[in-house]
Write a protein that binds this DNA or RNA. Structure first.
Length: 580
RNA sequence: GCGCUUGUAGCUCAGCUGGAUAGAGUACCUGGCUACGAACCAGGUGGUCGUAGGUUCGACUCCUACCAAGCGCACCA
């Protein structure tokens, strides 16, 4: 709808240019906004105020000229001047009716798929395989996956990359411990990965012999020793199974084939250093191979180094990140590479991205974007920890969420069977954790609070899931299929129009999610849709409508609302329930 | 020391590339169930948008300085 008004306005501006009212060289960005106040019409534009000064005109006078030059269009009832020079557009209801009816008829809800879809590599989750996944991995996994799903819904080609930490010195310690256990004839117990890590760390600290063996194993591993690599592969495969089980439980779409860990770039690291040398970007400093970029200079004129190779010859994460960028840009042909990684690594990524462009690992056309996020804090505002101060395992967090959700659902449905209770409780528990995270701007730290996220009131997963079941319930009662119902929608009641208007904004919200990596915009949107639906539901009887025609029309509108909520939640990685 | 992020109602958070009177939820107060699921809806109280300047017709939004919190700044990732 915005695009229609935008087209009309740009035509009007062209006309005024021809008439000499506006200078030829003005090419303003036409910004159409949804109005907040009904008296301002449906859509508004501030273009007259932007152009008034360069045109040397009074904004209202210019607005008047623009309106006079607008081509007539049956879809727009009226354009008015308001306030200091806004132009308010009143949309023809029949156009809105047509739009919602068309969206209902489309299984893709009227959202156009990108004509020229981009190839977008998304790096997210990326846990360290040496340890068990903890709460710190939650945000990357969930937010990244939501953006991935939104991009795919828009018709882009997404290549998921789970850049797991499967390399590095800590693996020597783990392999040494594995070896020791196997030699002692003990069965390998990796069920508790965290415990295994702690135990091997303990051995490493306590025994000099063990530590020596661990260091030997790292060297052996890196030089391609067969025995060592077999141990390593065994360990990783078990550790990865833990991750995959959690993804499945969380509804995160990452699979084994999306894994391309640090180790995948081992053979490229030397090449990266050589290419940097050839490009004359490399400098030796204190024995290490470094790149100094002028962009990263402090006030004293000291440039920050990007260390690519240690004094001892070892490589660092900057090196493998550069190799990953080269692979993604050159092999995967990425138009964009998105990194959902902790905000704390912002400097590192800024440096690596700048260097990658400079060294030609990625062309200037390849957009490298670090979409960072803040810390997950407890109720006290400090990083979320267990009572004893340790990191919270992701499994434990999800267990607790499910338990609490089951208790909650039970309290609302005392007679429900254990089986159903379990099913609904689990869905609600996981959804609550995910939604609480997704609904906040990722850049900020956020306070994790079970009571708040499991509440049925406010912008929470349970409220939205409930809203959906109410729609589903109508269709069950009417013995109709929400997904196949079609036909014309008439908008008579004010609440119907409000809902319809909001439903037509799905696509612009989606683009904000994909362009800026902000799923919280989608959360707010679904919440608004659910709220407007509730209001419509309260004010407009559906099954007991005045006429059969009205009943069908309202059913169709309800169906579009229900399907929008469901689709929106699915993009967020939250599945809906027909009953709860 | 330098840099990044954040600072909006008692609390948890929105506020889209500067736009019309700063919005939700929660808490608190008022109404509405012989139910298309009240797990809901309608309404009210509550904010000098960290502070001070500046740019602008117009600033929560942009610029500068300062204050506060968190986090980064050479061989961990």
């Amino acid at each position: 709808m915005k695009s229609v008004v935008e087209a009309l306005l740009s035509q009007a501006i062209e006309t005024l240019k021809q008439q000499g009212v506006l200078a030829e060289d003005v090419s303003p960005r036409i910004n159409i906004q949804n109005t907040k106040d009904k008296s301002h019409g449906d859509l508004a534009c501030n273009i007259a105020m932007m152009l008034a000064k360069p045109a040397g005109m009074n904004p209202r006078a210019l607005a008047e000229q623009i309106i006079a030059s607008l081509p007539a269009d049956p879809r727009i009832n009226e354009a008015q001047i308001a306030g200091p020079g806004f132009i308010n557009f009143f949309v023809n209801d029949s156009w809105l009716e047509q739009q919602v009816s068309e969206s209902l008829a489309d299984e893709h809800l009227g959202i156009k798929r990108a004509i020229q879809g981009e190839t977008i590599v998304v790096d997210y989750s990326s846990p360290n395989l040496a340890k068990e996944m903890h709460v710190g991995h939650l945000r990357s996994s969930i937010i990244g996956d939501a953006v991935v799903k939104a991009l795919e819904f828009e018709g882009h080609t997404v290549i998921r990359q789970n850049h797991v930490g499967d390399w590095g010195t800590q693996f020597g310690m783990l392999l040494a411990y594995m070896e020791e256990q196997q030699n002692n004839g003990e069965s390998l117990d990796l069920a508790d990965l965290e415990g295994f890590y702690r135990a091997s760390k303990q051995r490493f600290d306590d025994s000099e012999d063990f530590a020596t063996r661990a260091r030997e194993l790292v060297v052996a591993l890196q030089s391609g020793d067969e025995y060592c690599n077999k141990l390593w592969a065994e360990f990783n495969s078990i550790s990865l199974e833990h991750c995959l089980a959690l993804y499945k439980r969380l509804g995160v779409s990452l699979t084994a084939k999306d894994v391309r860990g640090e180790s995948a770039y081992n053979n490229d690291l030397q090449t990266i250093v050589e290419e940097l040398t050839q490009a004359k970007l490399l400098t030796e400093s204190q024995g290490a191979q470094c790149v100094f970029l002028d962009e990263f200079k402090n006030k004293e004129g000291e440039t920050l180094p990007i260390i690519v190779q240690k004094a001892g010859g070892g490589f660092l994460y900057a090196t493998s990140d550069l190799a990953a960028i080269r692979y993604r840009a050159q092999q995967l042909n990425a138009d964009r590479v998105l990194y959902f990684v902790d905000q704390r690594q912002a400097l590192h990524f800024n440096q690596v991205f700048a260097l990658a462009h400079k060294a030609g690992f990625a062309s200037e056309q390849t957009s490298l974007e670090h979409l960072g996020f803040g810390t997950m804090n407890g109720a006290d505002g400090k990083p979320f920890k267990t009572r004893s101060g340790g990191t919270v395992k992701l499994v434990d967090l999800l267990d607790e969420a499910e338990e609490r959700a089951i208790a909650l659902v039970r309290s609302k449905n005392p007679d429900m069977s254990e089986e159903e209770l379990n099913k609904i409780g689990k869905a609600v528990g996981i959804a609550s954790v995910k939604y609480a995270d997704l609904s906040k701007d990722r850049a900020r730290d956020y306070i994790f609070n079970f009571d708040q996220m499991l509440s049925f009131e406010g912008n929470t997963a349970p409220y939205l899931m409930y809203a959906y079941t109410r729609v589903a319930s109508i269709f069950e009662k009417a013995e109709l299929d929400m997904n196949s119902i079609q036909g014309d929608i008439r908008l008579e009641h004010e609440k119907e129009k409000d809902l319809a208007n909001k439903l037509m904004q799905f696509s612009e919200v989606l683009s904000r999610v994909t362009l800026k990596g902000q799923p919280h915009a989608l959360c707010s949107y679904i919440y608004e849709v659910a709220g407007l639906f509730s209001s419509f539901y309260e004010n407009c009887p559906i099954l007991s409508a005045d006429s059969e025609e009205q009943k069908l029309s309202r059913l169709r509108l309800a169906a579009l609302a229900g399907r929008t909520i469901k689709q929106g939640l699915n993009i967020l990685g939250i599945s809906t329930l027909e009953k709860m």
